[in-house]
Design a protein around this nucleic acid. Structure first.
Length: 836
DNA sequence: CGTTCCCGCCACCCG
DNA sequence: CGGGTGGCGGGAACG
């Protein structure tokens, strides 16, 4: 027994070990000096200072140390050594490297420091394990731990015994994509939900039947064997060494990563990860020791992943207490089905994925200059990066409206490098878009109601406001949509959401009355979620499990959201997730066919980029309000508000709007719910809109003077896919389009610009007219049939006063155009995440 | 105390 | 068989 004991920290033990491993080392009494241990790391005055500071406060020290690790792993350590050497000269045992200094994470840092993130093919990127182990002064065993995890991410690959090839992060994004895909296939999301649910159901009961039960239910998911996820270009490793059966650590690592990529707040608690990893291969013995071991391994993996800055440690506080967890801090992984693109493992520069976007920006913004100028400009690099960041989020936005909005925001950021400057414009554009939606919808509803209920006179807006009859059972078997409380004309209260990742906050304006309604947890608000693939088929815990969030460090907090968490199994029939998406699609099409006798179907491809206009979305970036949220709402209120998000996506006018699964999934930009009649505008935005519309956008002046709306529009349209990238829409075709679009045939090819305008107009019109508001926008191919000029779109643009007049935005001037104040909302929090 | 996780035994390959 | 791997779990360090 005693042999198995972990060696004591005492010098004697260590020395014996040391001598054993390194017989030719110094005499026993003089252990290696720090200088010998870390010959590479110079120690600087800075580190000295930090060391002194750290010495003053242990708390600061640890924090400081951790922070420092990411930049300069060796420094602090070195400093500490020096400190201890100075302070406690002969009393050496204290300076015996503490456990922390031998941590796998630190070791991994040192390891990573040896190799560039993005090695060029020219360099020799071979890793000799022996060498590394020696240089880092660790047993080889430890290097294996690191290398295995790196291998799971394809950052290294094994060449032969003792030899690895270093790839760095070149493959990372592809690997992550692959992992995400596999993770989805493995239904990890569901498994997580199930575990959470079980956990909740039998609170303290941890043994016996439940375990079996759990194992049994896991059985249904058991389709994943212990397989290592390979990358297309990477599997050519030396076959001789490749056949090791158990790649457990690698596989574990991959699965662990998958869990992050799949779950919606990208936070995974160790406990759940362990359970899933266990549950998969061995669904029987969920015994305690196995669990413990798994956890230990997960710590190992997590340490390496942390060093890679892919995850970071947090704490999730549930009602039961603090639980260790990790949060994904790596790159966003977008589904990105870029066909069978060939591997570009070597030559591609680090930000290969982002280059096209840069070019795009460059083209759009600086059509005359080469992209080089743009991309090379040092002052822009940072900006571009941050924009790319935002872009990723935008791409995962659930609705095209949000995409448009966000794109506009992006544009303003890119073009002016300022949130503030174009905020007004942004808001205005957003407003215009929403107005389209609203008017379109209103018109549609009106005609429909008139048609369907001919015996009633439905001209008054009050009637229109009622839930649409057809929206109920016929459509999605959802309960009758709740008529969101009719907005009064009170004031609105902004709520600042702490937004994920970028630190950009979005203000959501909340109408007081609704705020109240929502925060009281009124049962009537517990609506059904939309039965789309990502959500359905998931048994989930009820809202009782909602956790709260606290933050220990004020910055960079995440408003986590997990759509499935608020679903309740009992209240809703479970639908097979495989089919629900299609069902949604079918139904949405069926629904549209009610309105549109003739539809233009599109292939799957175009559906993906097409715009499903799910009514709503409204987010205003607020550059200045980063921390404003703290004062505002209590956690309960926030949680309460959250519950709205996943209620039925319905509106009094539109009824239930089907969404595709892709729109529901991976919502990093919060989804918003807004009803067309509840479009909310802050006074300033209305003002801005009015001003802008009067001055430029609606003027009949078609001069080519620089008009911000044009680039904005170009950018937005391109971004959203209405026009091809790189194509410019010269002026503001949309707002001037009426003659063109009403008689498309006649315009023909007068000029290229005209042509372009025409196309764009058509596209937009089509988009709006053909289901853009009800569900699907189908292919961009233009119908040959002449447009019936009685569309809402056109009505909007040729407002009562004529083509060039501004539609009245002031409330109550015209019932159909009235924009009343209301709400949309949705932050969602349920996890309390705290950092250390 | 609970959490974190280092340490190294030893079972497995493989040449 | 000898050496490279790496699963695994005890128990020390940490907080």
């Amino acid at each position: 027994r005693s042999i198995l004991k972990t060696p004591l920290k005492q010098a004697a033990t260590s020395h014996s070990v040391l001598t054993e491993l390194q017989p030719d080392c110094q005499p026993l009494t003089t252990p290696p000096k720090p200088k010998e241990v870390f010959p590479v790391d110079p120690w600087t005055p800075t580190s000295n200072l930090k060391m002194l500071i750290s010495a003053a406060s242990p708390e600061i020290r640890s924090r400081e140390q951790r922070r420092e690790l990411s930049n300069n792993p060796g420094e602090v350590l070195q400093a500490k050594h020096c400190l201890q050497e100075h302070l406690s000269g002969d009393e050496y045992e204290k300076s015996q490297p503490s456990r922390k200094e031998k941590s796998l994470g630190l070791l991994c840092h040192k390891f990573l420091a040896r190799y560039p993130d993005y090695p060029s093919t020219a360099e020799n990127n071979y890793i000799c394990l022996d060498e590394v182990a020696e240089e880092l002064n660790v047993e080889r065993r430890r290097i294996y731990d690191i290398v295995n995890v790196l291998e799971s991410l394809h950052m290294v690959s094994r060449l032969a015994k003792n030899r690895y090839a270093w790839h760095g992060r070149h493959n990372l994004s592809k690997t992550l994509q692959a992992l995400k895909k596999v993770g989805e296939e493995n239904k990890y999301t569901q498994q997580i939900q199930m575990i959470k649910k079980r956990e909740h159901e039998h609170e303290f009961d941890l043994d016996g039947e439940n375990t079996k039960e759990m194992a049994r239910s896991f059985g249904s998911y058991e389709h994943s064997e212990m397989s290592f996820v390979e990358l297309p270009g990477m599997e050519f490793r030396a076959a001789s060494v490749n056949s090791r059966k158990d790649k457990s650590l690698r596989v574990m690592s991959q699965k662990f990563v998958m869990l992050f990529l799949v779950s919606t707040p990208q936070i995974v608690s160790l406990e759940i990860a362990a359970k899933i990893l266990i549950g998969e291969d061995q669904l029987e013995d969920l015994d305690k020791s196995k669990f413990k071991t798994k956890i230990r391994r997960l710590y190992d993996i997590a340490n390496v992943l942390s060093s890679l800055e892919l995850i970071k440690k947090v704490h999730v506080t549930e009602e039961r207490g603090r639980k260790p967890a990790f949060k994904w801090t790596g790159p966003e992984v977008l589904p990105n089905i870029q066909g069978t693109k060939l591997e570009t493992t070597s030559v591609t520069p680090p930000t290969s994925e982002s280059i096209p976007f840069k070019e795009q920006c460059s083209k759009i913004l600086f059509p005359l200059k080469g992209k080089q100028n743009f991309t090379r400009h040092p002052s822009l690099i940072k900006l571009v990066k941050s924009i790319e960041n935002d872009r990723r989020k935008i791409q995962s936005a659930p609705t095209s409206l949000v995409k448009i909005s966000a794109s506009m925001y992006l544009f303003s950021k890119l073009f002016f490098n300022s949130h503030k400057v174009l905020n007004c414009l942004f808001i205005f554009c957003l407003f215009v878009v929403m107005l389209w939606v609203f008017l379109r919808k209103a018109k549609e509803m009106k005609t429909k109601l008139v048609r369907s209920a001919s015996d009633c006179n439905l001209s008054s807006p009050e009637v229109v406001l009622k839930p649409e009859p057809a929206a109920g059972p016929q459509q999605l078997d959802l309960p009758q949509p709740l008529g969101v409380s009719p907005p009064s004309h009170g004031s609105v209260s902004p709520v600042i959401l702490p937004q994920t990742h970028s630190g950009v906050s979005y203000a959501i304006y909340l109408h007081p009355s609704q705020a109240h309604t929502v925060t009281t947890y009124s049962p009537s608000f517990m609506l059904q979620p939309l039965p789309c693939a990502n959500v359905t088929g998931v048994k989930s815990i009820n809202s009782k499990l909602v956790n709260k969030i606290t933050t220990e460090e004020g910055d960079n907090q995440t408003a986590a959201s997990d759509p499935t968490k608020f679903l309740t199994t009992k209240e809703r029939p479970t639908i097979k997730s495989e089919t629900s998406s299609q069902q949604c699609l079918k139904r949405s099409q069926a629904l549209q066919e009610n309105h549109l006798p003739k539809r233009y179907r599109s292939d799957k491809e175009s559906l993906d980029i097409s715009l499903s206009f799910f009514p709503s979305g409204y987010l205003i970036p607020l550059a200045q309000c980063t921390h404003g949220n703290k004062a505002g709402f209590s956690n309960e209120e926030k949680a309460g508000l959250c519950s709205l998000q996943h209620t039925t996506y319905s509106s009094p006018i539109a009824g239930v709007i089907p969404m595709t699964a892709s729109e529901l999934k991976a919502v990093n930009v919060p989804a918003f719910h807004i009803t067309p009649l509840n479009i909310m505008l802050s006074p300033t935005s209305i003002a801005a809109a009015t001003v802008l519309s009067n001055s430029s956008l609606y003027s009949s002046n078609t001069s080519s003077a620089p008009n911000p709306s044009s680039p904005v529009l170009n950018f937005t349209l391109q971004h959203v896919g209405l026009i091809p990238a790189g194509v410019q829409v010269p002026a503001n075709p949309v707002l001037q389009h009426v003659p063109i679009s009403s008689q498309p045939e006649n315009i023909s090819h007068s000029s290229e610009n005209m042509n372009l305008q025409e196309k764009v107009c058509k596209n937009i019109l089509q988009f709006l007219d053909h289901g853009g508001l009800t569900g699907k926008y189908s292919a961009p191919c233009v119908p040959k049939e002449p447009q019936v000029p009685q569309t809402a779109t056109e009505n909007f643009f040729r407002t009562p006063g004529g083509p060039n007049t501004v539609p009245s935005l002031s409330a109550n001037s015209d019932d159909t155009n009235t924009i009343s104040q209301g709400t949309l909302y949705i932050p969602q929090r349920k996890l309390e995440v705290s950092e250390d």
